[in-house]
Computed example of a mutant assay.
Amino acid sequence: MKRKILLSCLFIITLSIKSTVFAQTDEYYRPDTVKKERPVRKEIPPIENRAPVENKKVESELKNLAFKERIRLGGSFGLSFGTFTNVNVSPMAGYQITDKLVGGVGATLMWFKSKNYGVNSVYYGGRGFLMYQVVPVINIIAEYEAMNVEADSFIKYDARKWIGSPMIGASYSQPTGGRLIRAIHFTALYNLNYDNQLDDYGNNISPYGSPFVFRVLFL
């Protein structure tokens, strides 16, 4: 009985070994297309042997924009209270000349009141400007403004006179994401001609009351 059991065990072991050998042989002789897929290791060259990646220049898309897509519309306003009361608004239009340079024009309407000189009048005029971006939040500005103001003369009291104000300054800007109004600019300008803006009696007739001009500009 023991002999029969031993022979049965040997027969089962023999069959198992034979099946394993045949399975390995079949796998070996199968075509490459049906063999089990094995991950292919991708060799990465050492850092010192890697080819340098050239920095590609990103060309400005400005040259591809139509004229109307370069237009900016907005304006500025200013407030001053005290000895001189000055409230002014100015609609403006700008044009994107380059990626960093904007040029434009504006019209100005102003209410001006002076306690010292008894002036209470409306002034008007216009201006042209250039604004250049130094860094994303800082711009330098050059502006020329012409204003029609009241000025006493030897011939007529409360006469009207045109005065010109070349100004230079800078702005701190915050983008708005708008298509026409791209940013809000907090500007500070200096009037280079302030000391020469006098009436016939030597009184300064600048409507700003100071060589420094502060505005909030939307453009």
Results as ranks from 00 to 15, higher is better:
Thr20Leu: 15
Leu217Glu: 00
Thr85Ser: 12
Ala51Pro: 05
Tyr28Asn: 14
Ser210Gln: 06
Gln96Gly: 05
Phe11His: 15
Asn120Thr: 06
Asn193Pro: 02
Ala151Tyr: 00
Lys57Ala: 10
Val53Asn: 12
Ile97Pro: 00
Ala142Asp: 06
Tyr208Met: 10
Glu48Asp: 15
Lys113Glu: 03
Lys115Thr: 09
Tyr95Glu: 08
Asn191Arg: 01
Ile163Tyr: 00
Ala188Glu: 04
Gln24Pro: 03
Phe67Ser: 10
Ser19Phe: 10
Tyr194Glu: 08
Ser171Thr: 02
Ala93His: 03
Thr187Val: 06
Gly128Gln: 04
Ile140Gly: 10
Gly74Gln: 01
Val102Trp: 00
Ser90Leu: 05
Lys35Trp: 03
Trp111Thr: 09
Arg72Asp: 05
Leu109Ser: 11
Met147Ile: 02
Ile97Gly: 03
Glu48Val: 12
Glu150Arg: 03
Thr176Val: 09
Ile168Gly: 09
Thr187Pro: 02
Ala146Val: 05
Ile5Gly: 13
Gly169Ser: 07
Arg182Trp: 03
Val21Leu: 14
Asn193Lys: 10
Gly177Ser: 08
Asp199Ile: 01
Thr14Ala: 15
Val122Tyr: 12
Gln197Ala: 05
Gly74Tyr: 00
Phe112Cys: 03
Ala107Asp: 02
Ile12Ser: 11
Val149Tyr: 00
Ala159Trp: 02
Ala93Ile: 08
Leu192Gly: 07
Glu59Pro: 03
Val102Thr: 04
Gly106Pro: 01
Thr25Ser: 13
Ser121Trp: 03
Met92Lys: 05
Ser60Met: 07
Arg50Lys: 11
Thr33Val: 13
Lys63Trp: 06
Lys4Ala: 15
Ser171Asn: 04
Val21Gly: 10
Tyr117Glu: 12
